[in-house]
Computed example of a mutant assay.
Amino acid sequence: MKPWRLAILLAGCAVAGVGAWWLATRGVAASPLMCGLNRWTGLHCPGCGMTRAAYSLLHGHPWQAFRFNPLGMVVLPLLGLMALPEIIGWVKNEPPKRWVRLNHRWAMVLVVAVIAFGILRNLPWAPFHWLAPTSLAK
């Protein structure tokens, strides 16, 4: 194990922890993260609602987080679990022991799902408008 790799990992965890603390204590309104697409066009990108979803998760409201961005709440934990062996292998300077192999077909499925989600959540009729992150704000 190379100590500098562990130091980089710990520094990344510390930055993520400070970001989570900032969001949990200051709230969504204090977040510098704003969606440019939504600001300029009024459309919701596939990531719109993720800051509010993270805030809801930090305050123990997983269903509300899911309502702000359902795709993000399903895909991001799975990608995190898939990245974990990569990170451990990188820190140990060993080849990763993967439990899931993400080949080009799965990558294309993910890309198509994200694009489809971005399109569907902007359609103005039910059930698609329920995918918009503002559905709980009303």
Rank of each mutant, 00 (worst) to 15 (best):
V111G: 00
W21N: 04
N93Q: 14
A137L: 12
A132W: 00
G12T: 05
C35P: 00
L57P: 07
A54E: 00
V15C: 06
L110W: 06
P96H: 06
K138G: 15
P85M: 03
G72T: 09
A14Q: 10
H129G: 01
L10R: 11
H129M: 03
L84M: 11
L79P: 00
A24C: 05
C35W: 02
S56C: 11
L33D: 06
A20K: 00
N122V: 04
R39G: 09
W130S: 08
H129W: 09
L6G: 01
C45E: 00
N93F: 08
G17R: 04
A113V: 14
W90K: 07
E94A: 14
I8K: 03
F68T: 01
S135A: 09
N38L: 12
R26M: 00
H44R: 07
H59W: 05
N103C: 10
R26F: 01
R101G: 03
L71A: 09
L110T: 14
A16P: 09
W22R: 06
V109K: 07
A30H: 01
R5I: 08
E94L: 14
K97N: 13
A132Y: 02
G42H: 13
L84Q: 08
P77T: 15
G72H: 02
V111T: 06
A24P: 03
M82G: 11
N93T: 15
A14P: 08
G19M: 01
